[in-house]
Amino acid sequence: MSILCAALMLYGFFSGLYLAPADYQQGDGFRIIYIHVPTAFLSLAIYAFIALNSIIFLIWQIKLADILAKESAIIGALYTFIALISGSLWGKPMWGTWWIWDARLTSELILLFLYLGYIGLRSAIPEERRSGKAGAILAIVGMMDIPIIHFSVEWWSTLHQGPTLAKFAKPSIANEMLYPLLAMILAFALFYVVILLFRLRIEILKRNFHTQWLQQWLGPKLRGPE
């Protein structure tokens, strides 16, 4: 999977930065889209994934769902941050300003706050079970609130262009630009999954450090100070 991710990312970068023609209005500046759109899209998707896992954890008490939610949050916050920064870099030449209190920018910023609050709450509670449940409640409430925040900010002010990719409509973008974009979205998603699996493995090992199967498995490799 790592290899597939690397290949897609290489293809996306190469074709996005080199093969795709420059935009007739935005010139080469539009190429930031290949970082911005995947991270922005995934920042929301990952939050939804966290909320989904929180529901699973609360109902069926599956620990794995809790670990998935916890480890996703950090990556999600990072993607949100990258989306904000890349959007800001793009905004300077295109809109003539680094930052503007536009609806989508503002809701993305609030999403970052939600992520940071979630991470802060989880790290503030030392017991794993309580931390997981408290985090789950917060994530579910957050998921319910995201549409409300989104629409409140939307009506408040908007400058952002409409979405380029809608699911059922024909995309308003040329194919040479579209395919690298889709490749990059897939690549960032895979990157997320790869990192998530790494972190998942570490977290499972940490939580089960004192179990017998782990001690046996680790036995020859690692002996703690007796």
């Binding site: 706050f113 609050g117 925040i149 408040w156």
Partner: peptide, 26 residues
């Protein structure tokens, strides 16, 4: 959520402020 925690007050503010945004806006 933060009732038993040390430094709960600051964490509380960070947790709930994003949720208060729509009300303040309207």
């Amino acid at each position: 959520l933060t009732v038993g925690l040390q430094q709960g007050g600051l964490l509380l503010a960070i947790l709930v402020l994003p949720f208060m945004v729509p009300i303040v806006i309207f």
